[in-house]
Design a protein around this nucleic acid. Structure first.
Lengths: 149, 149
DNA sequence: CGATTCGTAACTAATTAAGTTACATGAAAC
DNA sequence: GTTTCATGTAACTTAATTAGTTACGAATCG
């Protein structure tokens, strides 16, 4: 798993889980999808369990399943559960007392607040179901073109 | 200079430059504002020079100055000149051929495109002049409260 | 009980970005 | 023209972050 690809990797995993709603997938299987280690998977999606997006069970036949229907799981929730920051720039003061820095931080924080509101709003309208639908569309297209040849 | 603080550090520097329009500030002086090394400053704002946001001159009395009026310099230009990415998540394929990944990337790239358009639009309405105005407001407030005491 | 699977801590490795040193280039002062 | 000052840039070092790995305890099923 590359850097900064936690969101896309997690979505990848979740679509696979949505595609197999009847059975639990193990960390090992999920890791295979994104070419990484089972422990990395468990660590990465631990927050999703706490958010109720997925459930996990131990022991024989255990593994991971979606916590609710794919159309009730938005990308906004997933991103938040991953602890991802939408906007990467920092506004930590480095020169406390400097009025110039205070002005910069104030403006930047205002922008960040508004931007995060906007992005979260948009992400909340995209659900896992949209992703699986997109996947099925691609899958069917491949099938059709195979027949055509 | 902390990680991910290139944007705020650069804005800090630029406001100081806007506040001293009559003379060039050296990398050394600029570095002092953000507690870092002159070479880091030169490296960081090299892109701003190429974008015409600042000019630099060598030798005696040399240093850095704004390339145009503060109200003609938007945060969108600055961010772009720094090579900053507004949205941090990666959509690089890691499993070429996997239709699930393709669907995820397609949706995510769509979102990114729209989000970047939105954020850039907003950043293009905030100028260096807005930042200096905010700074002056804070400066005057301090003055007033000092008198009050 | 034995096999399986998650949960998590602890450590290692890889990557990235900042900090530093060094030196060539160019411009102004004298 | 030589000295001084400043940028431009390459190369290297250091620090921080994140992914990968190993290990083992806890829980669950047959």
């Amino acid at each position: 798993m590359k850097r900064n690809s936690r969101l896309s990797s997690t979505l990848h995993i979740l679509v696979h889980m949505a595609d197999a709603p009847d059975r639990a997938l193990t960390s090992e299987q999920l890791a295979g999808f994104i070419h990484t280690n089972p422990v990395v998977v468990r660590r990465t999606i631990a927050g999703l369990r706490e958010a109720g997006i997925v459930t996990s069970s131990r022991g024989h036949g255990g593994g991971w399943q979606l916590g609710r229907a794919p159309d009730k799981i938005s990308l906004a929730e997933i991103s938040a559960a991953l602890g991802e920051t939408l906007l990467p720039f920092s506004t930590e003061p480095e020169s406390p007392g400097c009025l110039v820095e205070q002005a910069v931080i104030a403006v930047l924080d205002d922008f960040r607040l508004e931007a995060e509101r906007l992005l979260t709003e948009r992400l909340s309208h995209i659900t896992l179901a949209d992703l699986t639908a997109d996947f099925r569309r691609r899958y069917d297209l491949i099938g059709v073109s195979s027949h055509a040849v």
